[in-house]
Design a binder for these strands. Structure first.
Length: 468
DNA sequence: AGAAAATTTTT
DNA sequence: AAAATTTTC
């Protein structure tokens, strides 16, 4: 009799380079079960829940084509897995590892219990290029500095991606599977309708995008990735975040495409670094990695936070970014850094509030990248931008969106304003504003804080903790 | 992976 | 006087 293997699925809804799926299919008859575990969710992401719903839909179809059928369940992972083992007399459990701190801990407890029961249990790396413990400093400690982490990573052997699975033999058992609607992944509001227009949530779309990115943009990536109006970014992050695309597949595809892709692979390495740091310092989810900042005095003004969320700060590049996020579930990385710097430094709002908003609205919501990114921007991280680096939203605009193309795309009320004034509309002469059909304070807000004053104030707050 | 101010160099 | 470079926060 063939071995029955329970295959626990989470954010790995793909057929290519999927080790747990690949080896389970090779070794026995498989019972693949997708578990939505409400008990271990660190943070909820509305945008990503929508993405996950679509991922499940497409995977179910792809999986059927190779003879598979996905069981869908919701609840406590351990309870569900143990119940399935009992029902099916399965002898083995396989899964691809997840590294969200609470998920990882619960997975380990499950692993221990399965081991005690005498079950065959195997876990695999599928999310990262290298598991978080594979990179260590000479003294055995985890890294806190990106560049040295990156050097280590470059020296290591990274697994080649596995081929896409082409057939699977299912365990012939009859177990309960929920209809997808019962996962409550789609929000009650119709906000996500907008997202449908911008994203193609299919495994094949991810692979096609990767191909297109390397063909069209990779060669320009190093020089042009910082210009949000020029779409040179890969836009692969949501596919990576939910596991529709394998990082190893991306890595080897870029390495083997005859274009020098170091600048891009470096960004992929930041993702590795984020998960490395989160894995070894899980408290960084809520605590500043640089302890000095635990006593930092934040203002946390609710009104200002709301204006920031709505993209009504009076700084066009910040507002454009916040509106791109609301419309598409995505924001260009250069603008993410600016918006984050603005919230934490100009508005003195705790980075966690910003992180929560980003996480909820980003289709690429990634717990480690998001947390690391916000701590970096706030200057509270270990390898962060020094706190005194305060982005000037006007200068950032002039530098990275000189013609205001990006601003005009997302802040249409400024469409008629000449490029000269696009990053500081309130400074445009009366007649220019009139010609552009803009009344400051009515059609577009005046800056909610003065840059110079806010900068000085932020540096003052920094001085308070610096002394300690 | 900043910005502003101070200083030096070039017109 | 303006531009380029260095220093400081």
């Amino acid at each position: 009799m063939a071995t029955t293997i329970v295959l626990l699925r989470r954010r790995d809804l793909r057929l290519h380079d999927n080790p747990a799926l690949y080896y389970a299919a090779k070794k026995g008859e498989v019972l693949p079960v997708f578990v939505l575990d409400d008990t271990t969710t660190d943070q909820q992401s509305s945008a990503q829940n929508w993405w996950l719903y679509r991922s499940l839909e497409q995977f179910t179809t792809n999986f059927k084509a190779i003879g598979g059928e996905l069981i869908i369940r919701r609840g406590d992972t351990r309870t569900i897995i143990l119940e399935l083992i009992k029902q099916t007399s399965a002898q083995a459990v396989f899964w691809n590892r997840c590294y969200e701190p609470t998920v990882y801990i619960k997975d380990q407890q499950l692993a221990k219990q399965l081991d005690q029961m005498g079950m065959v249990m195997q876990t695999f790396e599928s999310q990262l290029l290298l598991s978080p413990w594979k990179t260590k400093k000479a003294d055995g400690m985890p890294y806190k500095v990106f560049t040295s982490f990156y050097k280590n990573l470059q020296k290591q052997e990274i697994h080649r991606p596995l081929p896409a699975l082409s057939s699977i033999s299912m365990a012939r058992v009859d177990v309960l599977s929920l209809p997808m609607a019962e996962l409550d992944l789609l929000p009650t509001s119709n906000w996500t309708k907008k997202l449908e227009r911008h994203w193609d949530v299919r495994e094949q779309a991810a692979l096609d995008k990767l191909q297109q990115f390397t063909e069209r943009s990779l060669i320009h990536y190093k020089d042009e990735r910082d210009y949000p109006a020029v779409a040179r970014h890969s836009a692969l992050s949501p596919y990576l975040a939910t596991g529709l695309l394998s990082a190893r597949t991306v890595y080897y595809h870029v390495l083997e495409c005859d274009i020098y892709g170091e600048a891009f692979l470096r960004q992929l390495a930041w993702r590795e670094f984020s998960w490395h740091v989160l894995f070894h310092f899980p408290e960084s989810l809520h605590q500043p990695l640089n302890e000095k900042f635990s006593s930092f005095r934040w203002d946390n003004d609710k009104t200002l936070l709301d204006l920031w969320k709505k993209g009504k700060t009076g700084y066009p590049l910040v507002d454009a970014g916040m509106r791109e996020l609301w419309e598409t579930g995505f924001m260009h990385n250069r603008v993410r850094m600016l918006a984050a710097s603005f919230l934490t430094k100009h508005l003195l709002i705790h980075w966690e509030k910003g992180a929560d908003w980003f996480f909820d609205t980003l289709v690429d919501a990634d717990l480690a990248n998001n947390t690391m990114g916000w701590q970096w921007a706030a200057g509270t991280g270990a390898d962060a931008a020094p706190y005194f680096r305060v982005f000037n939203p006007v200068l950032q605009g002039k530098k990275f969106d000189e013609e205001g193309e990006y601003v005009k795309r997302w802040v249409p009320e400024l469409k008629l304003l000449p490029a000269k004034y696009i990053h500081e509309p309130h400074k445009a002469p009366e007649n220019v504003l009139r010609a552009a059909h803009i009344t400051i304070g009515k059609d577009y807000p005046a800056p909610i804080v003065d840059h110079k004053a806010a900068r000085t104030r932020a540096l003052g707050r920094y001085d308070e903790v610096k002394k300690k």
